[in-house]
């Protein structure tokens, strides 16, 4: 029996989730008493093999097809690998690209799919855990099938340590080029601008709790009073209230300031991914159960519209009329 994990790379580098998949895959393989195979598709597969050869991997399959991710090539390759290896579990990253092919593969192979898995346990049946309702609850599911597809949340498992003894196999695929209906034209970095929030020592960061665009000057005044830099969670940028270069999180910037003050930010996993490395985290949020408190060092469970003016005054700043 086999657990098959598929590595992820972009623009020449393996992404960390690949090494986390090795850890999760080894854990599941131990439960099932099976081997762990890792496939790497496209790009510099020879170079990737060296990096992927980590503890717990039994076999690495290299597939030299294309450079960058293309979901058609991935889907066709994985379907062929699946037919060859007949794995119990197919373990894929719950990343933007993972979610661009995992559902298609599951559908094509007629296998049950559970996405964004944060924990795995047991073997018959395997029980998986995921978060729902914005992280307010965790739910366990039994998968009553011999074969299944799981996507694994990034940064939930540690990366596997180097020094594996995997066998390396070349896997030849037969790609139907005519069936590839998407063409990747290139990449672009977004969020450039005059302010680099990754350089800031103190970040004052705002989220949905600010409620209205008209209230943003309040936080700007706080940033001025503290001589800090203003950043935000995703909804503020989605609304066009702040430019993209201020966005902290999975799709924005990863920041590591000395102090991160999260104001009216609930702490969704995508946001936390971008700021958990901050030295000290202070949360100001009315909901004591907000996930931001799980990673905060200090907290004020109160209305930001009461606390922030008081804080501005503490530092001799002017409280704007909002």
């Amino acid at each position: 029996m086999t657990v098959l994990a598929v590595a992820e790379h972009r623009r020449g580098d393996l992404r960390d989730v690949s090494f986390e998949l090795v850890t999760a895959g080894r854990e599941l393989a131990d439960e099932l008493g099976s081997d762990l195979a890792v496939a790497v598709i496209g790009g510099d597969v020879e170079g990737f093999v060296e990096e992927l050869n980590r503890e717990g991997v039994d076999t690495i399959y290299t597939v030299a097809e294309g450079e960058e991710f293309n979901h058609g090539i991935y889907a066709q390759t994985i379907e062929q690998l699946h037919a060859e290896l007949d794995p119990a579990a197919l373990l894929l990253p719950n990343s933007v690209n993972g979610l661009d092919y995992a559902p298609a593969v599951a559908e094509q192979l007629d296998l049950p799919l559970v996405t964004d898995v944060i924990a795995l346990e047991g073997s018959d049946p395997v029980e998986v855990t995921r978060e729902q309702y914005g992280g307010k609850v965790e739910i366990t599911y039994d998968i009553g099938a011999e074969q299944y597809v799981l996507t694994v949340r990034p940064a939930e498992w540690p990366t596997a340590t180097a020094g594996g003894e995997a066998t390396v196999e070349t896997f030849e695929t037969d790609i139907d080029e005519g069936a590839l209906g998407t063409t990747v034209k290139g990449f672009e970095e977004v969020g450039a601008g005059d302010v680099d929030i990754t350089e800031a020592e103190v970040l004052v960061s705002i989220g949905r709790g600010i409620e209205e665009e008209e209230n943003i000057p309040l936080i700007e005044a706080l940033a001025d009073a503290l001589d800090a830099t203003l950043s935000s969670s995703r909804p503020i940028v989605d609304n066009g209230w702040l430019p993209q270069n201020r966005q902290v999180g999975q799709s924005g910037k990863v920041v590591t300031p000395d102090v991160y003050i999260a104001i009216g930010i609930s702490g969704a996993v995508q946001h936390v991914a971008g700021m958990k490395g901050s030295d000290t985290i202070v949360a100001i949020n009315t909901d004591p159960n907000a996930p931001i408190y799980d990673i905060a060092d200090y907290g004020i469970v109160d209305d930001l519209f009461e606390v922030i003016p008081a804080l501005i005054e503490e530092f001799g700043g002017d409280v704007p009329d909002i």
Partner: peptide
């Protein structure tokens, strides 16, 4: 569906924040 929900619970808070 071969997938069956078996439990739902509120995750234990991992918070060790000092709350002022």
């Amino acid at each position: 569906s071969p997938v069956e929900r078996t439990s739902m619970y509120e995750p234990e808070s991992e918070s060790d924040a000092t709350v002022w």
